[in-house]
Amino acid sequence: MRGVPARGRPRAGEKARLTDREGFLAWAFLLPSVVYLTALVAAPFCLTVAFAFSDANSAAPSYRFAGLRNFRAIFRDDVFWRALGDTLALTGLSMALVVFFGMILANVLLADFRGKWPVRLLVLLPWTTPVALSAISWRWLLDSAYSPVDPILRDAGVLHGGASLLGRPPLATASVVAVHVWRLTPLAAVILMAGLAAIPRDVGEAARLDGAGFWRRLFGVTIPLTLPVIVVAAVFGAAVTFADMAVVRVLTGGGPGASTQVLPALAYHRGVEDGDMGQGAAIALFLFPLLLAGVIGVLRAVRRPEDANDGEADGEEP
């Protein structure tokens, strides 16, 4: 003991290093991400707002304030209103289907069955494949000289004449929805799997012992307990769908006759291809309120359901 006096005592000579201070570390660790995200998300966002009120175009990169002119122009534009309506309808319909199929798929993927590994691999394909490539493959499958679907639809009398599947407005829209649902269902299923796996096993079994059948367990226990996760899956899916321009661009190119035009693709078309950055930015800005609604949805969902409506009088009846 006496031979090593320095060991027993705190090493007073050495100052506590900066790396030992939690407050400093927290900031040092977090700051790069915060700076990066602020610089590359907040700044471009402000710039987008600025563009929306300017007459900037790609030919003359000077900035001149133009007031509400861009907005007045797009409000007068039928294509814009069509695109806005289509974006909302597409997103809403896709998400309803994605959550429905995602719930089924999540339950199946959590069950035990033989050959699970290849099934999971194939099921993940739509999610992991670059969306533009998926869209190419779908276009090839649905609407090409080599399509196996085309002759079937012709035989069934759904298609006739020169128009192809993606050349007919209602069918083209349905195809866009189908591709979105196809692409996002696996993602939703993965998120929902996490939610379902978090339900304590005992609780589900207690419901079985309490005599509840499949449907009562589903609507009385499973869905209420996974509701926050369902909302998260739906909002994330919706954010991806309504901001997506790849599917529409590759699959239908917005056609036929602007019948499948969506806001992001329209913004790209006006802002980049037509070179009118002001108008493009104004159109893109319309994505923002929808985004905000989604954010609020997520924030409310992550509050636990156990906390919600506590002590409220019981009025619910199945």
Binding site: T48, F242, A243, D244, L263, L287, F288, L291, V298
Partner: peptide
């Protein structure tokens, strides 16, 4: 949740 389509311009 901020989509690229809002920022790309």
């Amino acid at each position: 949740l901020v989509p690229p389509s809002l920022l790309f311009l």
